[in-house]
């Protein structure tokens, strides 16, 4: 039961990897196509700028691998920037094309109204309570750090939001593909429970 954590040179993978291990799964930090596609589940982490991250994914050919994984059966989870990358495009420092796995755009917060980055503990509201990612869980606070947020094109892909002057996308999902804008590995008990629910999906597929 290995969970592949995609290593494309962006951000700190250590915390995510340790969180996966603490939940009783084997975590494999890797950039290898075979290992990623053979894993029971895939996590795309990420901290940093959208354009740099996409450039790095393209250079390593990992963009195609993530798309392949998403098209397959194995559950895939994008975290923070990793979730944003799943979408069609971002307007962070100019227009950048994303992985296009889910339709939607990544936009900047309306500055002036509230502090940017949106950083800290904010309350998650479940939009689709019956999603397996929320099984057994109640709404609560999770830890966000981001200056851009996702506007999914399809309302049906939106699983949870948080209020930061407007409804901000917190969790997305469609089929085997999920995304969390906050850091589940830094979000206390609720964060760990959300991550556990994702990991449970990797077992269900086998």
């Amino acid at each position: 039961m290995a969970i592949a954590i995609i290593d494309y040179g962006m951000g700190n993978l250590h915390s995510v990897s340790k969180a996966v291990e603490r939940l009783g799964y084997e975590a494999l930090i890797t950039a290898d196509r075979g290992a990623i596609l053979a894993a029971d589940g895939v996590i795309l982490p990420g901290v940093g700028a959208f354009g740099d991250a996409m450039a790095s994914l393209r250079e390593t050919g990992l963009d195609a691998v993530v798309r392949e994984a998403a098209a397959g059966e194995q559950p895939l989870l994008g975290i923070c920037l990793g979730m944003q990358l799943l979408f069609s495009e971002s307007e962070e420092h100019g227009k950048h094309e994303g992985l296009g796995i889910l339709p939607g755009t990544v936009v900047r917060f309306d500055s002036g109204k509230l502090k940017v980055p949106h950083m800290g503990w904010n309350k998650l509201s479940f939009v689709q309570q019956d999603s397996p990612i929320f099984t057994g869980l109640e709404e609560g606070h999770v830890y966000f750090v981001h200056s851009y947020h996702v506007k999914p094109e399809r309302q049906g892909d939106l699983l949870a939001t948080t209020d930061y002057g407007e409804d901000v996308t917190g969790v997305v999902g469609r089929g085997n593909v999920y995304g969390m804008q906050f850091h589940p590995e830094k979000s206390g008990e609720l964060g760990m429970s959300l991550l556990r629910n994702f990991l449970l999906l990797t077992e269900a597929k086998n």
Binding site: K113, L114, K115, M119, G120, W121, N122, K123, H141, D163, Y164, G165
Partner: peptide, 9 residues
């Protein structure tokens, strides 16, 4: 500026 974030301990 309004702040909706939880106060931290």
């Amino acid at each position: 500026m309004r702040n909706v974030l939880a106060k931290r301990i």
